[in-house]
Design a protein around this nucleic acid. Sequence first.
DNA 1: TTGAAAAACTAATAAGCGTTAGTTTTGTAA
DNA 2: TTACAAAACTAACGCTTATTAGTTTTTCAA
Lengths: 196, 196
Amino acid sequence: MSKIRPLKNGTKKEVITRKAAALFRKKGYSSSSMRELAEQIGVEAPSLYNHIGSKAELLNEICFTLAQDYREHLQLVLVSNKKVVEKLEEIIHFHIQLMISSFDAVFVVNHEWKQLKDPYLTEFIAQRKNYENQLLQLIEDGIQKKELKKINPYVAVLTILSAVRGLEIWQRHKNNLPAAELEYQMIQHLLTGIIK
Amino acid sequence: MSKIRPLKNGTKKEVITRKAAALFRKKGYSSSSMRELAEQIGVEAPSLYNHIGSKAELLNEICFTLAQDYREHLQLVLVSNKKVVEKLEEIIHFHIQLMISSFDAVFVVNHEWKQLKDPYLTEFIAQRKNYENQLLQLIEDGIQKKELKKINPYVAVLTILSAVRGLEIWQRHKNNLPAAELEYQMIQHLLTGIIK
DNA sequence: TTGAAAAACTAATAAGCGTTAGTTTTGTAA
DNA sequence: TTACAAAACTAACGCTTATTAGTTTTTCAA
């Protein structure tokens, strides 16, 4: 067999991680075997261990790399001088873009984070809770500034996060609907409702 | 060990299925072992097979029992003489109620349906597609009757289904927010938006 | 061309899996 | 009390798992 060929600008470990994300998405983390992952790459399973430490490490990598993307973007938006509604639009936009550009990873993080082992599991939950809390504050800010209705901020965060998360279904369906149109429609729905 | 005691109005198989749903929710289907399930019930693993056929059968049972609940309720709502908006409210209401009354099962169906084996997997996907299509028609009906804005019906269905599905997070957080309040707020958000 | 490092290979291990076989215990009705 | 059926038990099978050990091949710079 030939050696694992790294893509341009990608270490071998990154290639393995990317393929792992794709496999984990299709079959789930626990149902994916290292043998199967190796086969996807064109190598025998033990060869993977020249580049990675363990199967669990792959999941850690996938989860925390993506979590950092989310956190960094949120910080950027929050410190900007925009209106609350514009900030919300930007956040939703980013979630949709990430769903498109990193579908496998987004899906795996959403579905398989529970398979993380401590201390990673605890850390992941803490980071996510923090993200939710920052969104909560943003919504409360919008209500206080009278940009938003007097809604329950917790439910608003829940609804928005759930909706963007649900985009995986749209991705899965390989729909004809273009991303820009989807994004516009979903933002409209979440911000202004559907009743005439 | 003592025999498996059926609850009032519950066969032994139902007890096992209920415990399985709880275990599958906490650990995922593939990461749950029959030995662990047996331990939860207070019995040795092989004893389970006096009551069930296989591990896969448990997942089938969980998925299709719940799917039938959804389908039956949708039929009931669709044939009623209500306005489209009222029908939507009722559907959202039912999803929330089911999330409360059958949290384990709802969660397992949402997360583990992929682990179904054919022909059950194919049948499940078909049923879900059918459910989505009926919702789509309802939304289109609402637009035509000018009850709803001229939105993209597909995105509306996606957003609504995703939002109610995301209620698992609310359930998980063991929040103080009462179900009735959550339900009212979420319906308001989904139907009328959050912008003032 | 050589030599060292990187990365592939084969073989194997220990643990865990769902499940079956065969046996013993338990519950119940006659 | 007896007898039958239900349901528990122990032991084990065949398979898959992630991972390690040890060896060979490949790559690449000197």
